[in-house]
């Protein structure tokens, strides 16, 4: 039992070692199993301090909060050398369809295949299978409607893959709405074809919006 005031430094060293050997993000609770005497807020404080230490020291390693845990990763600045070392290119990225499907699942989960297909306008069976295989999505149950279709949601690996600490870190979907509001307000009543050519000359922009 050394003096507990200085323990903070040793706690940090223990956590540092844990993070070093871990392959996936380590949740606070997991650290708590090792540092039994500490509660989660104390651990969190220590990890955050350690994180700051790494940042200020400008090491090639950083500590990131990812997928509900903490993870030691390399600083992005060194990606170039690491790629060379690991003999890899920029790596396979997910395809457009995969990303679209994931986006829908991430925001709409739990969601059925039919619901995804309605939004994307195409069959997503193959994409879902691939995403399941990659572990990026999970089956979360069945929807209690006719046919009891499967419900899909994102997994912890999803967060890790995209470097997110939690789903809440995703920008709100409303952020992606561009002309959305305009639509609700004004579906123009005169169809641009067929009808009412006479109206076109008159200046009635303001009129159009009202309905």
């Amino acid at each position: 039992m050394e003096d507990s005031s200085g323990s903070n430094e040793s706690i940090k060293r223990v956590i540092e070692a844990l993070l070093f050997v871990s392959e996936s993000p380590v949740p606070i609770e997991r650290i708590g199993l090792v540092l039994e005497d500490l509660d989660s807020s104390e651990i969190r404080k220590a990890v955050e301090e350690l994180k700051n230490d790494y940042e200020t020291a400008k090491r090639s390693l950083v500590i990131q909060e990812v997928a509900g845990g903490y993870q030691m990763t390399t600083n992005p600045l060194y990606a170039l050398w690491l790629r060379k070392f690991l003999k890899k290119t920029h790596g396979e990225k997910l395809s457009g369809p995969s990303l679209e499907t994931l986006a829908i699942i991430a925001y709409k989960q739990p969601v059925t295949r039919q619901e995804i297909e309605f939004i994307r306008g195409v069959n997503v069976e193959g994409v879902l299978k691939a995403l399941l295989e990659k572990g990026l999505i999970r089956i979360q149950g069945r929807k209690e409607i006719i046919g009891r279709p499967l419900l899909y949601g994102t997994s912890r690996e999803f967060l890790e893959y995209f470097g997110l600490s939690a789903l809440e870190e995703l920008p709100p979907i409303e952020e992606f709405v561009q002309q959305g509001e305009q639509l609700e307000a004004s579906l123009p009543e005169d169809s641009s074809e067929a009808a009412t050519p006479a109206q076109q000359d008159t200046q009635n922009e303001s009129k159009e919006i009202t309905s």
Partner: peptide, 25 residues
Amino acid sequence: EYQKFKEAAKRLGNFESTRKEVFTR
């Protein structure tokens, strides 16, 4: 609606690229 998710997918793609710059154990 579709456009919204297309944009969201693009954002996910950015997250992916950022994460690919980082290496873990």
